[in-house]
Design a protein around this nucleic acid. Structure first.
Ligand code: FES
Ligand code: FES
Lengths: 145, 145
DNA sequence: ATAAATAAAGATAAAAATATCTTTTATTAT
DNA sequence: ATAATAAAAGATATTTTTATCTTTATTTAT
């Protein structure tokens, strides 16, 4: 596995796709999303169900329904998606999995790790979900092989 | 979960502990290690079995046997442990889990993520397993709550 | 009102990660 | 040689993650 869980990877890709596809006010359905990001449809449905409850994305049922994001959603930091799915242990947890990370009782890697962990958090909080739309429009960046 | 798998977290803690405890040429047994780093004994045994095969740690059976590390082991970069356990996807994989990470067909997060990923790799390759012994000796750093 | 479309919810399954127990092999001390 | 010790290897179990299928509820269009 990489830095994030598979669930979180799909969530991030889906969120980028929805942001990209519904910036004009439209909706995008689960089948379409799954195909566009190469993810298992039913599994992704569960993930989006959850993101919808957590108000990271929005949805409407019925004909012409689907998922979308309003401008408030688009301006959220990407860190919100990661935290919603994987929790905050990646931002606050000990590198060696000790019950908590604190400089009171640091593990050997504490100082070195804090740098990396903080840079990850800084990066994810400083970018918004929506800011990648333009490059997606231009075909510079991609969400599937 | 944090940045590494649970297996990897235990591996890292165990490796630090073995390095610390056997710098004088002794051995340390699995029960002792497990107790010292707060890990499930049998599970850790499997992990160390594997690290032993991969020559990250060394071991001898029988009375006064146990695990240890020679000076060559001690000078290995910590990245070797992570890679042995979790593979190299954390160093080379796409943030969004696309089949490969490449600047030819980058995902939206590629540039931002590369920074973080490279800093993690840089950090883990620039520190050696053994270099944390002194602080462990001094009781400045810890391997269990 | 009715039918069609679509996400939500619920139930189940498969795979992978984590954990435990038992048996075997190698080493050491006597 | 024998017995004791400790890791290696093998087998099994549990939990979590990932994945799929079915049913229900909501919305829209007719
Ligand atoms: S205590 Fe381990 S990273 Fe802070
Ligand atoms: S392609 Fe996604 S991080 Fe490089």
């Amino acid at each position: 596995m990489g830095m994030f869980s598979k669930t979180c990877e799909y969530a991030l890709r889906a969120v980028f796709l929805i942001a990209h596809r519904t910036a004009d006010g439209g909706r995008v359905g689960i089948k379409d999303i799954a195909a566009s990001i190469d993810s298992p449809e039913y599994f992704l449905a569960k993930i989006l169900q959850d993101l919808s409850k957590r108000e990271i994305v929005q949805s409407v049922k019925g004909p012409n329904g689907g998922f979308y994001m309003d401008s408030k959603n688009l301006s959220r930091p990407l860190a919100d998606v990661v935290e919603a799915v994987d929790g905050n242990s990646i931002f606050t947890g000990c590198a060696l999995g000790m019950p908590e990370c604190s400089s009171n009782k640091p593990c050997p890697l504490h100082n070195n790790f804090m740098n990396v962990r903080n840079q990850l958090q800084q990066m994810l909080t400083s970018v918004s979900i929506g800011q990648f739309n333009e490059e997606l429009n231009l075909g510079i960046t991609h969400l599937k092989r």
